[in-house]
Design a binder for these strands. Structure first.
Lengths: 221, 221
DNA sequence: GAACTGCCAACTGTCGACAGTTAACAACAT
DNA sequence: ATGTTGTTAACTGTCGACAGTTGGCAGTTC
C-alpha cells in the first residue's frame, strides 16, 4: 500500500516493526528483544535501536531504561486523553476543511462515504480502512500539513488500541451517518457545525472503544 | 531548572543538543557533524545518532539521507502551519481549562499574569519565560496530558523560530492583555470565550512573528 | 516455611572500526 | 572559457564486540 521506499535499514526497520506491532503480530504488552528482532529482520542492533527509538517517539512503543521496549497497554484514562488530543486536532481540521475545501475535495469526500456505505451494506461490515480514508480525505481538504501529520500519529495509536476489537454494526452505522453529516457541513462551508459534528462523532467512537476495551479486559481477566 | 536526571548518554545528549539548538548556539541552517558533536559531548556516535533522531522527531532537527542533520530554517508557510497546529491544541486546552479548572488553577494563572505585568513594567520587557509559564499553567488547568505533551513540542519549535527576534513592546503589552482576558474567561467557566480569546491571541503572535521573521530575512538578504 | 543474600545469565548501553555514498575539486577535452 | 569526467576526502550507515546493569534463581539462615 504505502511505498516503503526508504533507503536506510533503520527506515525499513521502522516500517516493518510498525507493521508488526499494528497488525498485532507483536501483541500488546509484549517486550521487544533487540537481538532477537534484529536477527529476525536480518539487520544489526544499531539500526534496530534507532527504529525502536523512532517508534517510541510515535507512541507505538514505550521505553524503559535497561529493560528495553514493549508495546504499550492502554488504560481507560489513556484512551480518554488520546481522544481529547484527537478531538482537538480533528475538530480544528474539520473547521479548516469547511473553510478551504474545493469542489474536488467535496467530491472525494462524497465518494469515500458512498464507497463506505456500499461496502457496509454489501458485507454488513464497515472496513476500518475506509474510515481512515475518510478522515484522511478531510485532512487533505483542511490543507494544514502539521495538523495532518499529528492526526496520522494519533490515528496510529488508535489503530493500536483497536487490535482485537470486535465489530459493532450499530456503531458502524452511526459512524456512517456522522461522516455524511460531516461532509454536509463541510460542503455547506459551516466550520462551527463541522467542528461540532466531529466532536460528537469522536465522542461516540471513544465511548464505543472504551466499552470494547473494558469488555476485552473483562474477558481476559 | 529542569532536572536532567537521565541515565543514558543518549538521554543526556538529547538535552544538551536541544539546549545547543534552542539557544541558537548551533544556528538555524547549520549542519550537525556527527563526529564533531560526538567529540564535543565526549560520547560515541551511537548515542549521539539516537539523540539526533529523537530531536528530528521533535522537529528540532531535520534529517537528509546521507547528508546528516541540520537545524531547520522556516518559511512563512511553515510558521502559519505551525501556528494552525498550535491553535488547534491550545484552543482545545483553553476550553478544557475553562471546564475543569479549580480555584487553585485560577489563582496560579492570576499570579503568573501579575508577575508578568510587574516584570514588564519594571524592565519594560516581557520575559518570554513568563509567557511560557502562563501557557504551561493553562495546560495544567486543562488536565489533558496528551495535549500538554504536544503543546510542549510545538512551543519548542516556536522557541526555535524566536531565536534572534527583536522585542516589540506594543505586542508584549497586547499579549499581557490577552492573557488577562484568557484568565477571565477561564475563571468564568466560559469555554467558548476562552477558545476564541486564545485563537485571537495566537493569531496576533503568529502575525507578529511573521513580520519579525520577514524583517530578519530582509535584513539578511 | 519464609525471608534474605550472593551468584548468574540475559539484555541493554556503549564503543571503535569498516563499508558505501555523496559532494567538491581538479584535470582534461571540446 | 566552459562543460565533462575522474579522483579524492569527508561523512554517514552499518556492524560486531565489550562493559554495566537488571532480574531471577539457588543456597543459606532464622
Amino acid at each position: 500500500m504505502t511505498p516503503p521506499l526508504h533507503l536506510s535499514l533503520a527506515g525499513q526497520a521502522v516500517d516493518v516493526l510498525r507493521e508488526l506491532v499494528l497488525t498485532g503480530e507483536i501483541p500488546s504488552g509484549a517486550r521487544v528483544n533487540e537481538v532477537e528482532v534484529a536477527a529476525r529482520l536480518g539487520i544489526s542492533r544499531g539500526p534496530l535501536r534507532e527504529a525502536i527509538r523512532h517508534l517510541a517517539s510515535e507512541g507505538v512503543l514505550v521505553l524503559v531504561p535497561h529493560r528495553g521496549a514493549h508495546v504499550p497497554t492502554a488504560t481507560a484514562a489513556d484512551v480518554r486523553a488520546l481522544f481529547e488530543l484527537r478531538a482537538a486536532l480533528e475538530c480544528a481540521a474539520a473547521e479548516l476543511a469547511a473553510t478551504r475545501r474545493t469542489e474536488a475535495d467535496v467530491a472525494r469526500l462524497r465518494a469515500v462515504c458512498a464507497e463506505s456505505r456500499r461496502s457496509y451494506q454489501a458485507g454488513e461490515r464497515f472496513p476500518y480502512q475506509l474510515d481512515l480514508a475518510f478522515h484522511q480525505a478531510l485532512l487533505d481538504a483542511a490543507r494544514s500539513p502539521r495538523i495532518a501529520e499529528q492526526v496520522r500519529l494519533v490515528q496510529q495509536r488508535v489503530v493500536l488500541l483497536r487490535s482485537g476489537l470486535r465489530d459493532d454494526p450499530p456503531h458502524q452505522r452511526a459512524s456512517l451517518d456522522d461522516h455524511d453529516a460531516l461532509v454536509a457541513a463541510v460542503a455547506a462551508a459551516d466550520p462551527a457545525r463541522a467542528s461540532e459534528v466531529m466532536r460528537k462523532h469522536l465522542a461516540r467512537v471513544c465511548s464505543q472503544m472504551l466499552t470494547g476495551l473494558l469488555g476485552a479486559e473483562a474477558d481476559a481477566g
